[in-house]
Amino acid sequence: MLPDPAELIACPTCDALYRARQPAAGERAVCERCHTVLIAPRARAGMSIIMLSLATLILVAGAINFPFLRISRAGFGNDASILDTALAFTEGPLQLLSLAVLALIVLIPATRALLTLYVLTPVVMDRSPWRGAAQAFRLSEALRPWSMAEIFSIGCAVALVKVADLANLTFGPAFWMFCVLTVVVVVQDQWMDRWSVWASLDREAAT
């Protein structure tokens, strides 16, 4: 007898199929082939993820408005924010590049945070999911590979090392906010138990 597809879970790394079962408290389900964590429920994880999503939105708002970096040399200086830098290129292919960078490092993380709040808030409050919650969570997962805040941080670190010999650099509040934002996004993804979220949405859809 073929298993019900709804009972199966596929490893995102090696595509191995398993029958999904809720682990006991303090346990987690791990792929036998590649040891990728498949199911890892945590106590009060939903509320923690909601708090991290709110923190992401606050940090994004600060990171795009406060000065990111100040460059000074020979008595001349200039402050630059992420938003100012993106809007500085208004013509040609650089405009598309700057908008793409802004979307990948700011807009997509903020969008994923909003979608996460939309999906998890009613679940954590033991209420029925809001309309379109499954589609919202699916969109959030589809955007995950395109959220590149940590890639931007690595690129900034490399660029600043090269520029430091040419001018005096002073990190603004947005720089530190963006560093914290990178950590928050990574921690949120680590805490997210996607199987549990889908299971909650499926149970509500079946009732």
Rank of each mutant, 00 (worst) to 15 (best):
Q190A: 12
L59I: 00
L143W: 04
A110N: 07
V119Q: 02
P93A: 14
A159P: 02
T36Q: 14
R19K: 14
S196V: 10
C11F: 07
I58P: 05
A136V: 13
I108G: 13
S200Q: 13
A167K: 07
S147W: 04
F68A: 04
V161P: 06
M177A: 06
A16P: 01
R44T: 06
R33C: 02
T36E: 13
A100C: 10
A174I: 02
S140I: 00
K162P: 00
R70K: 07
L102N: 06
S153C: 10
L117R: 10
P93V: 15
L83T: 00
T85P: 07
T121Q: 05
I82Y: 05
V60T: 14
F137Y: 15
L160F: 05
R73L: 09
L87S: 14
D15I: 09
D79L: 03
F66M: 01
V101G: 12
R203C: 09
G155I: 05
S48R: 12
D84L: 00
V124A: 11
A43M: 03
V101P: 04
A55E: 11
T111V: 15
L166E: 13
A174M: 08
N168C: 05
A136D: 11
A43I: 04
V197I: 15
I58W: 13
L57Q: 09
R73G: 09
W176C: 07
A24R: 05
V101A: 15
P173M: 10
L94T: 03
L96C: 04
R21Y: 08
P5R: 10
L139S: 12
L57I: 13
A55V: 10
M47P: 00
T170Q: 05
V106K: 06
T182P: 00
C14A: 10
R73Q: 15
W195F: 11
R138T: 13
A24N: 02
E150G: 12
R33D: 08
L181P: 00
L181H: 08
F178M: 04
